[in-house]
Design a protein around this nucleic acid. Structure first.
Lengths: 157, 157
DNA sequence: CCTTTTCTGACCATATTTGACCTTCGCTAT
DNA sequence: ATAGCGAAGGTCAAATATGGTCAGAAAAGG
């Protein structure tokens, strides 16, 4: 069992114990507790407490800084995904589209495979036209994401 | 929880308690109460009680000085935004335009995304012409801001 | 071996706190 | 009127306290 695993279980234990859906802890103290460098904590959070796995991390730097870990439900994540969809503007660049896709994947609403499919469609379609690529890309992305989410919802039931 | 957080909650509590949309307090007394330097109060006001967050700060120096904190409604902020629009002159420089955009964002009438879009349009359009950039910039800015606010109003309902 | 995961450390970014110095206002003595 | 004084509040930059990032070393797995 690696250090990362130990830290992971410690945090999960704290979460269970608190019965509070969320806990706040200090990166420096945790690192101290496990005698490791602070960035090890970031590693654990990045690999084990992702949105996809149902955790939400918030943090603040500076005096009185903290790291807050909260459980989020599937419903929460769907809501966040809906918000994200609304934030796709009228036009977006290829790299912005990538960012959105990554976010949807992080939220666990798109699988890697679904991301690949959508990316391919985006590329094929925008290659067809000379002008208005950014606009088309935005519309397509919105549509494809929504459609995929709908399909998934069907299949769940 | 940092000192700043404590002071923030104290002030919010006072605001709630008064049920009066506004309270007046003395910087020195507050600082005394929390055993901190007076400028700490300014810090809290500057970071937590911004227009964007719905607060308006007024103050007076000298004998009998005070700091007044008021809640402002969305409607209030829209009014202020309208005033701001009127203050865009016949011509403005790029940096002035930036300031206006920042103010509109502070007022919460333009999202970061909307600011980016408007900035991009401003740049693209003024790059097209040789003369009269400042005039075009002023007209465009006015138009774009008004249009965006209109759109938002539609979507709200 | 080669790949993937875990760890570490150097360097970075940001939030808070404090203190020295500045500006504004009201009042009073001239 | 007004110069001067004391009583507010304002600004800004430095010191301090956290957390974040990233590249490469080390370890584990296959």
């Amino acid at each position: 069992m690696s250090l990362a695993d130990l830290i992971e279980s410690y945090i999960k234990q704290q979460l269970h114990r608190s019965e509070n859906e969320a806990i706040a802890l200090s990166r420096a103290e945790l690192a101290e507790l496990f005698s490791c460098v602070p960035s090890q904590i970031n590693y654990v959070l990045a690999t084990r407490f992702t949105l996809e796995r149902g955790y939400l991390i918030e943090s603040r730097r500076g005096g009185g800084g903290y790291i807050r870990i909260a459980r989020v439900t599937k419903a929460d994540r769907l809501n966040m995904a809906e918000q994200l969809v609304l934030e796709i503007g009228l036009q977006i660049s290829e790299s912005e589209a990538e960012q959105f896709l990554a976010s949807f994947h992080d939220l666990g609403v798109l699988t890697r495979q679904q991301v690949r499919v959508i990316r391919a469609i985006l590329q094929r379609e925008t290659a067809q036209i000379a002008q208005g690529k950014a606009t088309l890309r935005a519309s397509l992305l919105r549509g494809l994401v929504i459609l995929t989410m709908q399909c998934d919802k069907q299949n769940e039931v």
